[in-house]
Write a protein that binds this DNA or RNA. Structure first.
Lengths: 146, 146
DNA sequence: GACAGCCTATGACACTTGTAGTAGGTTCAA
DNA sequence: TTGAACCTACTACAAGTGTCATAGGCTGTC
């Protein structure tokens, strides 16, 4: 087995991870500058969070440019989302139904969305022959721009 | 306007709210006893959380029986879920699609689920004439497919 | 080779969250 | 009326989080 243990990320940590997922990798300065201006924390605040992310093995130092470190994500967007969803599902008693219902009710989900999902599901189940794992594409962006 | 301001609940607070939503109202003792045995916190731990929930106006003292207070939720399950979902959606860039896709991919969602949702959505949109409010039965579904 | 300017490493602090102990009030049955 | 049993109010405390300030180390440029 793999030592993944599904790292828990806080709200703010997640925000920073999102920036990193977007840009692939970057310095503290770059991260900070990409946070929304309203409510943009001090440079050292971002630095602290990045350090904590390092401690959690959610990011790592990829290289150094000038005297600044460039960080890259170690946790994929997918796995982070996975964790969030599972936690949310627990709150819904484990079933996705009430969650979906809620989305539909609040207009977050359209009939077209459902149709497409259906198609996707149908497709997937007919794929049952190969292992589902490696077929996944989604996080592509993560390390691509080394 | 209404002073709702969407209370933020922690993991554990949420767990307790779930018990209260289930039973309608209850004492600290009743709440504690309904928490899963494995990992059931001390009586006073539950008491503390309930006190914090009171401070947040998420529950209130309904009455006293013997020397024990009976608490009832002030926040509805629906609104709490609503908040959770919205927060999750933010992490997904605001769209429900990736979330749904994830659910479908991980097998949390079946074709039948989708069919039913579709029916629901269709129904709902044809209902556009009456106010949606009082028709809601929300909390019922949660345990239905145990 | 000296200085401005940016970076890192570290320390700090208040607030939140999970967890529980203690002291003292209330109830009810014997 | 007294004691067990239960309840509340209060206190405590460590770990987690958000937020920075400071001190001191590189670097590129006159």
């Amino acid at each position: 087995m793999d030592r993944k243990k599904s790292i828990r990320l806080t709200r703010f940590e997640l925000e920073i991870m999102h920036v990193l997922w977007e840009i692939g990798s970057g310095s503290v300065r770059e991260i900070q500058e990409r946070l929304p201006e309203k409510r943009r924390p001090a440079y050292t605040t971002v630095q602290t969070i990045v350090r904590r992310l390092e401690e959690k093995d959610a990011v790592r130092r990829l290289k150094k440019i000038g005297n600044a470190f460039i960080f890259e994500p170690l946790v994929t967007r997918k796995s982070a989302h996975h964790r969030l969803i599972n936690e949310l599902l627990e709150s819904f008693g484990g079933s996705a139904r009430p969650l979906m219902a809620h989305l539909a009710e609040t207009g977050k989900l359209s009939l077209e969305d459902l149709k497409e999902l259906e198609a996707m599901l149908a497709q997937r189940s007919s794929d049952a022959s190969h292992k589902p794992g490696p077929a996944r594409r989604d996080d592509s962006g993560n390390r691509s721009l080394k």
